[in-house]
Structures are given as C-alpha cells and as structure tokens.
C-alpha cells in the first residue's frame, strides 16, 4: 500500500488569463488528516476539483493512490468518498433512491452503516433531496461518502452554512470514522476552530501559492503572541524569533513570533523583562489571520 495517498506535484490552474493556483506541491500521507486552509478565492476549490479528476491542471499533476488521477479517475473514485461544498444530489432523488444508486457503483458498500448514520441524524428516506434542510443534505452527503468505506475522504468546506449543532455532529461523525478505520482525510475549509483539534497537517493557500505545509503541532509550537510594554519599535532581541507582525494595542504592543523556541526565548525574555504570562500560544484562527493580516505592518 502506497504511503502517500495524495500528491500534488507543481500544480497550476488557469482560467483564461487568470492564474488561480501557481505551482502548488504537497503530499498527504496515509492516515493523515490534512486541512487545506485559505480565504475565499485562494484556489482551494480548484485544487479540490483537480484532486477529484474533475479538472485537468494547466501544469503539473495530481496523483491519488500513486496514479495520476485525471487518467485513472474511475479506479481512484472507487476508493474515495467525497462531500462537496455545495450539495449536488439531484433534487428529485430521495435519500433511499440515492443510496440505492450509489450502492451499485462500488465493489463494497456498508449499507448498515449508512442507515445507522441517517437514523442517528433523523434524515427522512423518502423525501426528495431538494426538500431536505441544508444540515440534512450535508448529513446525507457524508453518509453517502462513507458508504463505500473509502480509503480517502475528501471534504470540501463541509461545515459551510451549518449551524453549531450540525457542525458538532459532523465532527463527531468524522472522529468516529477516524477512530474506527483510520481513513485518510483531505479537508478544505474555513472552519479553523473546528478543524484545529482534528487535523494532523495543515496547508495554507494564499493568492494561489502555498504559504505553509506543516504538521499542526509543529506550527502551533512555533507561533507565539508576545505582549510588550509600549516600546514603539520591536526590540532587536526578538529579531531571531521570526517576528511576523506587530500591532499597537490599546494597553500594550503585541508581536507575533513565528520561530519561537522555548529555550532560546527564556534568555530574551529575562533580558527584556517579559513575564511568562505575557507569552501565549495562538489558535489556528489567530495564526491564519496573522499570516494574512499583518496589522500595523509586516516587520522585516
């Protein structure tokens, strides 16, 4: 079994003259939960379409299970479950009809599992999909995606438009699936808070380029927010810790450090008289915002 489930190799996507994705390369290893982050229009959807063999990149290629997916789409999709961004179940089809249709397409189908999930969420079987609520559509889509016991689960912004309860249920479902089968997951999302606890690796797409592609733990390990007494400018001792942005706050100045190291920082901290309580970790959301919005200015 291939240790790499998904590989993006120098993928570029163009629409006419606009370059939506520019030379993106990264890999999703087996068993990993990979979260691809990016603002609207950053190129996430284009990458997901390339991943599913729906679109051919202008340059580069995407491999799934070790083979280029544009050429081997059918073989690849037999092992992939997809939850799309916008529900694409034909509106006239009921849940029962959709299940019956999908079950025939795969070599193996976990019908009992699908029924169990739909029962748990209370999704009616005979109502046309167009008449279901957004949450129910999402639940049906997830149940269908998990039906073939896929080796790869692809979720394109699955929590878009869902209320808090539906979002919670979706993550619970995902976690259970991970616990049961260790499925590889590729998740393109805005929901940074929800994904924070579940993702193994994280990639951030901005302006069509990959800003980072890293272990989540390592990422969170190297970012810190430091509160400084109002000094006006960044103290030079902090320069080696990859200061990313500095913001003038109401009570104090704040700096974001992107190359934090516990040991090395202890000295600087004492030298600058920074209290340990002034150094705090950052949530995914805060890191993401810092990467995109430097506040009062990017520090060189």
């Amino acid at each position: 079994m291939n240790p790499t489930v998904v590989a993006f190799d120098r993928v570029s996507v163009r629409y006419g003259r606009t370059v939506a994705v520019d030379g993106v390369s990264f890999v999703v290893p087996r068993g990993c939960v990979y979260a691809l982050l990016g603002r609207n229009g950053a190129g996430k959807s284009s990458l997901v379409r390339c991943l599913l063999g729906e679109q051919k990149p202008a340059l580069g290629s995407v491999s799934v299970f070790g083979r280029p997916v544009w050429q081997t789409r059918v073989a690849a999709m037999a092992r992939v479950g997809v939850v799309p961004e916008e529900p694409d179940i034909p509106p006239e089809m009921s849940a029962a009809a959709t299940i019956a249709f999908c079950a025939r397409l795969y070599p193996s189908w976990d019908g009992a599992g699908v029924e169990r999930r739909l029962d748990r969420f209370g999704v009616p079987r005979t109502v046309p999909a167009g008449a279901l609520s957004k949450g129910q559509k999402g639940q049906l889509a997830l149940a269908l995606a998990l039906g073939p016991s896929p080796d790869l689960l692809v979720l394109d912004d699955p929590t878009l438009g869902l209320d808090a309860v539906a979002r919670k249920e979706l993550y619970e479902e995902l976690v259970e699936e991970l616990a049961d089968r260790g499925t590889t997951v590729f998740l393109a999302t805005h929901d940074l808070a929800g994904v924070e606890a579940v993702a193994d690796r994280v990639g951030a797409l901005a302006g069509g380029r990959l800003l980072l592609d890293e272990d989540l733990e390592a990422l969170k390990g190297r970012f810190r927010r430091v509160r400084l007494r109002s000094v006006g400018a960044l103290p030079p001792e902090l320069a080696r810790f990859g200061p990313y942005a500095m913001r003038r706050g109401a009570f104090a100045d704040e700096a974001v450090l992107s190359r934090f190291d516990d040991g090395a920082f202890a000295e600087a901290r004492d030298a600058l008289g920074i209290d340990p309580t002034d150094v705090s970790g950052m949530t995914m959301e805060e890191i993401f915002i810092a990467l995109h919005d430097p506040g009062d200015g990017r520090v060189p």
Binding site: L52, G53, E54, R73, V74, A75, M77, A78, V80, V82, P84, E86, D88, I89, P90, C102, L105, Y106
Partner: peptide, 12 residues
C-alpha cells in the same frame, strides 16, 4: 454544477 455527483463516483 451537479455533474460532480457522478464524477466523484466510480462511473466511467
């Protein structure tokens, strides 16, 4: 944009 329903499945 519902062709993805078929294309994301093993339908040649």
């Amino acid at each position: 944009r519902r062709l993805g329903f078929y294309l994301a499945r093993p339908i040649p």
